[in-house]
Design a protein around this nucleic acid. Structure first.
Length: 970
RNA sequence: GCCCCCGUAGCCCAAUGGGCAGAGGCAGACGACUUAAAAUCGUCGUAGUGUCGGUUCGAGUCCGACCGGGGGCACCA
């Protein structure tokens, strides 16, 4: 499309007769540039802190902290979908700023990450250069939107001053441990020095009981290190050869691929940094109840943490000292446990492999189905394990057929002394619970399937309903077949909950088990073998013991390297090993330091932190971006984020007031950030227990895309619709609905819209097209409607020929006053609840009314137009400022005033009631608003139409709803 | 397979704790302005709320089943 044609969709193409002061795209653009410059000169969006370099008197006011999810400054440029949430938060922030609140709203950049690194690999451009260029470009785009950000508070995670504090926080976590006994068993992070002191004082015994002072320094360190909240662990991690790095569980899709790049991920034992997020599992679940978050996100976090209550049960083994420990959520079904299953990697399976003499052949009478065709348990288990290891996650998912082999061992069910066979099967996972289960086919569908296949006994221990058909019964019911003469225990007749309680205490009493809680949540794998991330502030001594850098040596800056990429491999090469880029900076990696016992040689950690690190705490840095002494000043933190029981109830955990972003961060960023916040809280560095008190997920702007017969995308803006079919250049094309993007040829940029209509029109349209939290299709052709409204509003204030105000000092009539105050009232409540679409509708409605009444030579009353200008100001700030100033006001309206509805105009003197007859509206009546039930009833029954319908008979019933209607039932 | 959310006019969307189905915008028709067109302004439809059943004086709203769309989880014992 040519430039001229493109313009014709806007108002720029208006002919010579266009009145000189009409609100066109050209005038809108001038106004927007002007006011953006004025705001900058005035520092209109500067929020005052109580103390420090950004302190100011405004901090005496009630605060509001509004935040958008940290954007990644991609080089691709924004489309109109990106700023939806940014505009939403801006409208909310502006509204509250006008109400007199001290509003903190800014935006920084989550700027570490792969794209800049990959671009560096291709072009040799330093990732910092790319990142900084992208940030500048991004800023140019969002600044044009007129967002009221405090520019002084912009941060980027890649700023050295910023990541110095990210490293500092890492050290706090590294130098801390979780005391599960603290705070009445809720647990709390404490400094690691306090743990060492407990060991040294003998208050806490070492794992094997050796007195502390008898251990050498290295042994002591190994023990202490095993308690740290950030720790090194040699454990199975997600190794992604295609990316050349390990990734967190949260970054692996259900198909076993990396979320970024879709490369296969393999479980490999590698030494890696972990964060002990599991220590916080209970608090992370429980505190969800204290948050004003969408239920959907809370549910996703609950599912991810996956807390389940149950019991550990110990099964003795035939002729052996060991026992098998299992975790079950259904200890009440113990009498139905007819076999057991170990995960293929279970330690007990190792013993079978290491004792082929004992497990060389099958016990007499072993069922053929149990052998897998092998000569004995040792061979069968070895082969089964090997097969399980090579199976990818995807294979395991696709094939849910139960497989397994018998181990040759029998265990003893503690409740009745019966011998049950022990199997190895891959439907049991080593990583969950104890890696072993008691199998209860009667009450578990998976066990049922296995039992059927292997010919194992099935015992129902819960009575299913009479009409129950099918396999395992997992519902409630009375316990059956659940007693034993041998042990004297009986659960028969108890319902599931009662039976659970009884059996759990019986197990504890007899030493056969105990109540237990399990979680799906695993510790957070925190290291990446990449370049463009925060280096770990850690060095290793000659014993390989990790030591935190002293605070005064922070930041540990990223070194220059020749190669920005880690070594990557064939995506399927599971046996490859990570080689971080920083390990190639040998000069940097080897370092002489004095860490207290003289100048010594150390080796730096060559991993970098995952991209999530910066976004775990950036809200704290927004508060105090210029503080060089501390990551955030305590008083400033308390002001902006501290708990406010007076406003939010006694249980308020604190946190910022409104956090808006997409739902895709439900478990990653939002879980990690909560975790860091809680550690910082425990260690006394912050006053808020939660980072984000209120969360709101904005929807997405989507778009139609069109493909021709070859399946190639054609420019969406050139497609025409005819009778429900779509054509491009005369050829029929097919329509699909989804994302907006350059490659789909359906991308619309904010700049195009701003050029055609002005930014205020774009902002207004985005806010009016639907509720902020729902997704909807973009429709460029609809934007004109928002623009027309602004033109009419402008015309009601400004004479299009002279540019002079049209308003008069005449008093509006009472009807108009009522309409105005009703609008004020409902727009305020819509703004409060983020219902911007209905606020816009009400403003248009009122403006249409004014337009109708005052379209002639007499302009509308100033006392109506001034409040209207103030009401739209959060949505269209540039236009509103311009009109406000043309109305003769010298002060900017950024800090108010904001109209207040006069209650007197909200109550009506008379009301029109519908009168229903048998539920259908048949007539109407107008009565005084004060009319009581009896009067309403009498007036309704006296209505001629109702009389007619009743036709002389008595109504069977009359329903009177004051303020609503009257329903006569005949 | 299980769980959650959503289906209102040609399209995007409104509609208090059940209480008059329509606030607003787009598109459309007609009209004003214009030599004409664009732009602008004015006037005006259209659906009975995905389907079936239930509760109720009264259901878009509550309950059940089903259909369609979106999302989450998926051997987690």
């Amino acid at each position: 499309m040519s430039g001229a044609e493109r313009n014709s969709q806007g108002t720029e193409g208006a002919g010579d007769e266009t009145p000189p002061f009409r609100y066109t795209a050209r005038i809108a653009g001038e106004i927007e540039r002007n006011w953006q410059r004025r705001w900058e000169e005035l520092g209109s969006y500067h929020a005052a802190n109580p103390v420090g370099p950004l302190s100011g008197e405004d901090a005496a006011a009630e605060k509001l902290f509004v935040q958008d999810m940290f954007p990644y400054p991609s080089g691709a440029g924004l489309h109109v979908g990106h700023p939806l949430g940014f505009i939403g938060t801006d409208v909310y922030a502006r509204y509250h700023r006008m109400l007199g609140r001290n509003v903190l709203h800014t935006m920084g950049f989550d700027a570490f990450g792969l794209p800049a690194e990959q671009y560096a690999m291709q072009t040799g451009t330093h990732p910092r250069t790319t990142t900084e260029n992208n940030i500048e470009r991004y800023l140019t785009q969002i600044r044009r939107l007129g967002l009221g950000h405090d520019e002084r508070r912009r941060v980027a995670t890649t700023d050295i001053e910023f990541y110095k504090w990210t490293q500092w926080i890492f050290l706090q976590i590294f130098h801390a441990w979780y005391d599960t006994e603290a705070d009445q068993g809720r647990g709390r992070a404490r400094p690691i020095s306090e743990l060492e002191a407990e060991f040294a004082a003998g208050k806490r015994s070492t794992p094997d009981g050796t007195p502390w002072e008898e251990l050498d320094r290295e042994q002591q360190r190994r023990i202490v290190d095993s308690y740290r909240l950030a720790y090194l662990s040699e454990a199975p991690v997600n190794w992604c050869p295609g990316l050349g790095t390990v990734v967190a569980n949260e970054e692996v899709t259900a198909e076993g691929l990396s979320e970024r790049g879709d490369f296969p991920v393999f479980r490999r034992n590698l030494k890696q940094w972990m964060m002990r997020i599991t220590a916080y599992a209970d608090r992370l679940v429980d505190d969800l109840d204290r948050l004003e978050w969408p239920d959907k996100v809370k549910t996703m976090q609950r599912n991810w943490i996956g807390r389940s209550q149950g019991a550990e049960v110990y099964f003795g083994l035939d002729d052996r000292a060991e026992r098998i420990e299992v975790f079950t959520t259904r200890p009440d079904t113990l009498f139905g446990a007819t076999y057991m299953v170990l995960a293929p990697e279970h330690p007990l399976a190792d013993e079978i492999l290491s004792a082929p003499e004992r497990f060389g052949s099958w016990p007499e009478g072993t069922d053929q189905r149990w052998t897998g065709g092998y000569s004995g348990p040792a061979a069968a288990v070895a082969e089964y394990r090997r097969a399980a290891e090579t199976k990818s996650e995807l294979d395991r998912q696709e094939n849910k057929d139960k497989t397994g082999v018998f181990t040759g061992m029998h265990a003893v069910n503690p409740v009745n002394g019966e011998r049950v066979p022990v199997f190895v099967a891959d439907y049991v996972l080593l990583s969950y619970g104890t890696g072993a289960i008691m199998a209860v086919p009667g009450q578990d569908q998976r066990d049922w399937e296995f039992a059927e296949k292997f010919g194992l006994p099935i015992v129902r221990t819960v009575q299913p309903p009479a009409d129950f058909e099918g396999g395992a019964y997992t519902g409630d019911g009375p316990a059956i077949n659940s007693s034993s003469g041998a042990t004297g225990l009986s659960l028969d007749g108890l319902d599931v909950d009662e039976a659970k309680k009884k059996i759990t205490s019986w197990l504890e009493e007899h030493g056969h088990g105990k109540g237990s809680v399990q979680y799906k949540l695993r510790d957070w794998l925190f290291a990446r073998q990449r370049y463009w991330g925060e280096p770990f502030p850690v060095v290793y001594d000659e014993d390989g013991i990790p030591l935190g850098m002293p605070e005064d040596q922070l930041p540990v800056e990223l070194p220059e390297v020749a190669e920005y990429s880690p070594r990557t491999y064939d995506p399927d090469d599971a046996d490859s090993r990570p080689e971080p880029p920083l390990s190639k900076a040998e000069q940097w990696a080897e370092v002489e330091l004095d860490l207290g016992d003289g100048l010594k040689h150390y080796q730096r950690d060559t991993n970098v932190m995952p991209q999530w690190a910066g976004s775990c705490w950036y809200q704290l840095r927004y508060i105090d971006p210029e503080n060089h002494e501390r990551f955030v000043d305590a008083e400033n933190e308390r002001y902006w984020m501290g708990p406010r029981p007076d406003r939010h109830g006694a249980n308020d955990p604190g946190g910022l007031d409104l956090y808006v972003g997409g739902v895709e961060h439900a478990v990653l960023h939002l879980l990690y950030a909560r975790f860091w916040q809680k550690v910082l809280y425990d260690l006394g560095h912050v006053s808020a227990e939660e980072p984000y008190r209120r969360l709101y997920n904005q929807g997405y702007i989507q778009a139609y895309a069109f493909t021709d017969s070859r399946g190639v995308y054609v420019p969406a803006e050139e497609v025409v619709e005819q009778d429900g079919r779509y054509f491009h250049a005369g050829e029929e094309v097919s329509r699909e609905y989804g994302k907006m993007g350059k490659s789909l040829k359906n991308s619309v940029s904010p700049e195009e819209m701003a050029d055609s209509y002005g930014v205020d029109t774009l902002r207004l349209y985005e806010m009016s097209m639907g509720p902020l939290d729902s997704s909807r299709p973009w429709a460029t052709k609809d934007v004109i409607g928002s623009h027309r409204f602004l033109q009419r509003l402008w015309r009601n204030v400004v004479d299009e020929r002279t540019g002079q105000p049209r308003v008069t000092d005449a008093e509006p009539d009472e009807d108009l006053l009522r309409a105005l105050h009703k609008t004020i009232d409902s727009v305020r409540s819509d703004y409060d609840s983020l219902q911007f679409n209905t606020a816009v509708a009400k403003l248009i409605e009122l403006n249409n009314r004014v337009t109708k009444e005052y379209s002639g030579s007499v302009g509308p009353p100033r006392s109506v137009m001034e409040p209207m200008v103030l009401l739209v100001a959060p949505l269209t700030p540039h236009l509103a400022e311009e009109l406000w100033s043309r109305l003769g006001n010298e002060e900017s309206l950024v800090h108010g005033p904001f109209p207040v509805a006069d209650e007197d105009y909200l109550v009506e003197d008379t009301l029109e009631y519908p009168i229903q007859f048998n539920g259908k509206v048949r007539s109407r009546m107008t009565v005084p608003a004060s009319a009581e039930q009896d009067e309403l009833r009498a007036t309704a029954l006296a209505d001629s139409r109702i009389q007619e319908l009743l036709d002389g008979s008595e109504p069977r019933k009359v329903v009177v709803v004051p303020g609503r209607l009257v329903n006569v039932v005949g």
